[in-house]
Computed example of a mutant assay.
Amino acid sequence: MSIHPHHQPAPTPEQLQQQLAEAGLRATRQRLLILESLLVLPGHPTAEQVHQRVTGQLPSVSLGTVYKALDSFVAAGLTRRVASAEGSRRRYDADCTEHHHLVCADTQEIIDYCDPQLDELIRGFFAAKGLPGFQAHSFSLHVTGSRVADPPTADSAQQSA
């Protein structure tokens, strides 16, 4: 089980060009900046956050261009759309590995969560139940809640005694 932040160092222009080429997309300056922004912005950014970062480097890029590029990245498998706690804003996740999302209803923060045991339980559940007329390829659990203070562990209780 692990909770991990979504923040990476800036990829090189060559790495960005390679990702776009492998996805079958042309490496335009706009797409390169949008993909880079998506990869380096913390958390699960909105199109508006990506647009704000991109226009700092290329002011002529419209919000519509950002949405179109992000949609093409989703279609090509470079990113995923993530439901947000507020529901109305699309957020994006550049991490396409299997993981789940914990959404804080208070702060709107989306936290990546990995747990192979949970994944196995979900696979087993659907294998046992079956899905008539449907073949599942992947899954992502979305859990909404609130952050709470970490409970003291036995070790920390002994240290404070």
Rank of each mutant, 00 (worst) to 15 (best):
R91N: 06
Q52F: 06
A94W: 09
R29Y: 00
Q15L: 09
I111W: 07
E109R: 11
Q108W: 09
E98D: 13
F73L: 10
L16R: 04
E48T: 11
D155L: 12
Q57D: 10
Q135W: 07
V82C: 07
A85E: 06
I110L: 12
D106I: 06
S160C: 10
I111L: 13
P59M: 07
S146T: 12
A94M: 06
G64T: 04
Q18S: 11
A10V: 09
V66A: 04
T107C: 15
Q17C: 08
G64W: 02
A83I: 10
A21E: 12
Y92A: 03
G87C: 08
A161W: 09
D106T: 13
A161E: 13
P13R: 05
E48Q: 14
G133W: 07
E109H: 09
E120Q: 15
T28A: 03
A128P: 09
Q108M: 12
L131R: 10
V54P: 01
G130C: 07
E86Q: 14
H100A: 08
I3Q: 11
A47M: 06
V74D: 01
E98Q: 14
T97Y: 00
A69G: 06
I122P: 03
A136D: 02
Q159M: 13
G87P: 02
S72F: 05
Q158R: 14
P5Q: 11
F73P: 01
P59G: 06
A157T: 11
C114I: 13
R53H: 05
S138H: 11
I34K: 00
Q8H: 15
P45C: 03
A76Y: 08
L33V: 00
A75L: 09
I34T: 04
H44L: 09
A136L: 14
R53V: 00
T97P: 00
Q18W: 03
A127V: 12
L58P: 00
I34D: 01
A75F: 02
R91F: 08
L58A: 11
I122R: 03
E36M: 05
G130M: 10
S2F: 14
A149C: 07
A105N: 11
D71N: 15
S138R: 14
Q8N: 10
P13W: 07
E48P: 00
P42A: 06
